[in-house]
Design a protein around this nucleic acid. Structure first.
Lengths: 201, 201
DNA sequence: ATAATTACATACGTAACGTATGTCAATTGA
DNA sequence: TCAATTGACATACGTTACGTATGTAATTAT
């Protein structure tokens, strides 16, 4: 049987480590994930980990980069499904909330990531999600549909509200009901950014 | 010299531990704070810590309870200084942002706290800040100044936006400038919740 | 006065991290 | 083609720091 090329083997090793770490971080949290354990689970040792990622933090960065890229892709997919730009924007935000309800994303991207790596906005690709929101907002402003002076700043606020909404929902006694409340309040909040804001109704 | 009463000594021990832990957690972060180190700094050992707080997490909870109470008090003070209810609400939110700029609050309440203890909304008194915002919103709704169907949900979103604004500001290259942008965008966001929302201007 | 509980300190075992080093394959250069 | 070097890991080691178990002196209860 022919051996695989060297570069491919290395890529596999890296991918295996990232996958194993992602699973462990998501399941038990960064602090409780033993490097010896999950590297062994991937058929490797800590030696490989230190070689490729420099340490536990480096692996976390790699995991976060991977997840963030997936989130960006999903968000772009959501907003693209709506012909009405405003509705696309709103659903993109709601999609943000829904994604953050997944335990893995919550644990890694919202809790451990910021605590270990510091501010999420400095992360490699977290800007991905922010940029997606920012671009959507810019388009709305250009179309005259949103009255926002600083789309990027607004996008960051909106993102913060979304993330915390997710934490609230996920930790509530009745996630279903809480989710409805959060999304409703969130839509109302966004409605206030609209040009002709028909706030009273 | 007369000895202090027993209960007072115990209270002092607890207070010393909380103070030492608060300083250490705020300075180097929860994970990097050695219990041996900061208990020794308080003239005690880990024995006292385990006796009073059950462990490292218990101490963190105590620290967070203390900080949260302080934050609540400060927030109440801010909103009370304004005669116009709407302005009071806005400034309360801005005060929230400004408090979260302090490194200790950011590190303990925004980063380590959620990562170690889980969702902040389950914390002992974090509801303090949320409740403060919720009450302000309810009053505005009652006065007909805000058009918000679910004050609590809205308060949580607003709080999330505030907290993330703080993280953004604190980690930006130019905190001064970023702060102005964030606060401006934040005020615009709140403006959208007003009854007669004069969004275009 | 003695028993029991409280408020700590001390001692111990262990898990986990980072580093330093070792090894073997693959690549490069002559 | 063969030696030298680099790269990709594994192994071994020392240290830190945590939790627990135990010890002890002072207080409280009986």
């Amino acid at each position: 049987m022919a051996h695989k090329p060297r570069s491919e083997m290395i890529a596999e090793t890296r991918a295996k480590l990232v996958a194993a770490a992602r699973e462990a971080f998501g399941r038990v949290g960064y602090a409780n994930a033993s490097m010896d354990d999950f590297t062994a689970g991937a058929g490797l040792t800590r030696g490989a980990l230190y070689h490729h990622f420099g340490g536990k933090q480096g692996l976390l960065e790699a995991v976060i980069t991977q997840i963030d890229a997936e989130m960006s892709a999903r968000l772009n997919g959501v907003s693209a499904r709506f012909s009405d730009p405003w509705q696309g924007f709103v659903e993109e935000c709601v999609g943000y909330i829904e994604m953050a309800l997944e335990p893995e994303i919550q644990r890694i991207m919202l809790l451990d990531g910021p605590a270990v790596l510091g501010n999420p906005f400095n992360w490699p690709n977290q800007p991905g999600c922010i940029r997606s929101l920012t671009n959507s907002l810019k388009r709305l402003v250009a179309d005259g549909q949103a009255d926002v002076a600083d789309p990027e700043a607004t996008a960051r606020l909106v993102s913060g509200a979304s993330l915390h909404a997710s934490l609230w929902i996920a930790n509530s006694d009745d996630p279903e009901a809480t989710s409805k409340r959060a999304v409703a309040a969130f839509k109302r909040l966004l409605e206030g950014l609209r040009t002709g804001a028909p706030s009273s109704g």
